[in-house]
Design a protein around this nucleic acid. Structure first.
Lengths: 151, 151
DNA sequence: ACTATCTTGTTCGATATCGCACGATATGGA
DNA sequence: TCCATATCGTGCGATATCGAACAAGATAGT
């Protein structure tokens, strides 16, 4: 390492590992989805199931930290596949509400079911406790970066 | 959560956090790069500095777990900016060696210098020890996913 | 040496992602 | 009320990413 006297490299390797795991897990997840669907589609459906639907596109874009144009594109794919539908926003004429359809919920459930064996295998090597504490750190990191971003 | 009886959701949130941090850290890093350069460019340069240059494009693609077509594209951008150059492969006529140029090394050093304040701030909240142990877990996870991928 | 098969890098086409700029609506102050 | 400014979603163009197919070179079996 060229800078043995500082910790910079450590933090870079952290983000480097994050990036690579993002790649690998994305591929793994996509292999469990029908052709043409991506992580971004699944992630939105999963979010809607877990946090409840009715969010606006902008709220979703912020939740995943992607530009709103990207979210528009992702949502239009989901709508075309009838996995979500849009409802008018009750208070704000500029906005809309993203609603899960039954088909969307089933799509997400099937994907999860298809991934369960893989996750079970993973759980043999990485205990829920290990992952839970990692999630704790990662969530803190996400919140920190998110807040820094806004400043 | 819809499946209170299994740990599936925990593992999903792990990968979800990974994805979001990937987004956020990518943006942060790109803000320290000249316009038109992306994380992928920096990541390759950083890899070449730390692991030494002379790798082949395919080896780099594997290191970052991206398709080789993607690496071809990334490398062509770096070559056009004269941050790397290609040398013929001594043993294999199909392949080539990716070599850092002085300009490439400086590019990487400048980027790191520009990021140091941000990382120093981060280090106040996330100690090197914390990050080091996270890197350990992440590296294990990467190796695991990598190996699963090949099966 | 010959040939079948594998490996490496690229080209090509399709699509995802992103920044910019716009129209529509909301908000707040004069 | 009226206007300036902010916010929400989208259209557009540029570029990144990826899978499929290919050409050139390597490899292994005969």
């Amino acid at each position: 390492m060229p800078e043995p006297d500082d910790k910079t490299a450590l933090y870079f390797s952290f983000f480097n590992e994050i990036g690579i795991i993002g790649q690998l897990s994305g591929r793994m997840l996509e292999s469990a989805l029908p052709a043409g669907f991506l992580v971004s589609h699944f992630a939105v459906l999963n979010h809607l199931v877990r946090r409840g639907d009715g969010s606006t596109p902008l709220a979703l874009a912020r939740a995943f930290q992607v530009p709103k144009t990207t979210m528009t594109h992702t949502l239009s794919g989901l709508e075309e596949a009838k996995l979500i539908r849009f409802a008018p926003h009750p208070d704000d004429g500029r906005s809309k509400c993203v609603m899960l359809t039954d088909k969307g919920r089933r799509f997400r459930d099937v994907a999860i079911e298809r991934l369960k064996p893989e996750l079970a295998l993973m759980a043999e090597r990485f205990s829920p406790d290990t992952i839970a504490s990692a999630v704790e750190l990662l969530a803190r990191m996400r919140e920190y970066l998110d807040q820094r971003r806004d400043e």
